[in-house]
Design a protein around this nucleic acid. Structure first.
Lengths: 111, 111
DNA sequence: TTGCAATACCTAGATTGTCTACAATAGTAG
DNA sequence: CTACTATTGTAGACAATCTAGGTATTGCAA
């Protein structure tokens, strides 16, 4: 993942994946494409981050996987949000907003 | 550092320190107090993160230190922004804004 | 029929920043 | 003389991301 060709901020990848899956069942490759598109090419997930993150989320019971066929006709593993995944997304989002507003507060301080 | 009692997002601490110093020369302890105040108690820097970050920034030539006396009359190491520190702050800020706007874009996507 | 690009999944190991949890010193207040 | 606050500092653990590789399948162009 890149922030302007630098690195992703730790902790946001999980939330972004959860959010992407909240829009619909999707496979790994598709998630990464979707994130790139939604962010207008600003955020780029790399596979070495993506797959470990997916397993992490699956282990924590936030998403679940099943094999299927992609729109391109290839075998692909489709992930979907579980109930606790939805809850986790709400929490991570709240805490992201809290955090980024706090940063914004600091950046706007003028004296 | 805490985001809602969880962890700080990697990469923002440097920017927050630089920004704090852009408001005036300050010592480590004071920087951490200032960040807490500016963020209205949302962000909490812990010392094990703060001092290594200060040395990192000093090594990179973004800040410089000199010993002095704190308002409380104790010996303290005062840091100030260098020229390249100011430049780095502008860049980090720009890239933070790019990044957080991209995240916001994704969070706001509804289909 | 060869070669290449795109789709799709996967993993080992390095890197690095943050956290936990200490330690140490110097004043100040009680 | 004790306790507390201010202040700096360090070692080691931890965890998420990145780099850099790998495999397999499909479609298409040369």
């Amino acid at each position: 993942m890149a922030r302007s060709k630098a690195d992703l901020l730790q902790g946001t990848l999980d939330m972004l994946i959860l959010k992407t899956l909240a829009l619909g069942k999707l496979h790994g490759w598709g998630i990464s494409k979707r994130i790139r598109e939604m962010s207008r090419d600003v955020l780029e997930v790399n596979q070495g981050s993506l797959y470990p993150a997916l397993y992490r989320l699956e282990d924590r019971g936030l998403i679940e996987a099943e094999w299927g066929i992609s729109p391109e006709g290839r075998r692909a593993k489709f992930y979907s949000l579980t109930g606790s995944g939805k809850k986790a997304l709400r929490e991570e989002r709240r805490s992201w907003e809290l955090f980024s507003e706090a940063v914004q507060l600091i950046l706007q301080t003028t004296q």
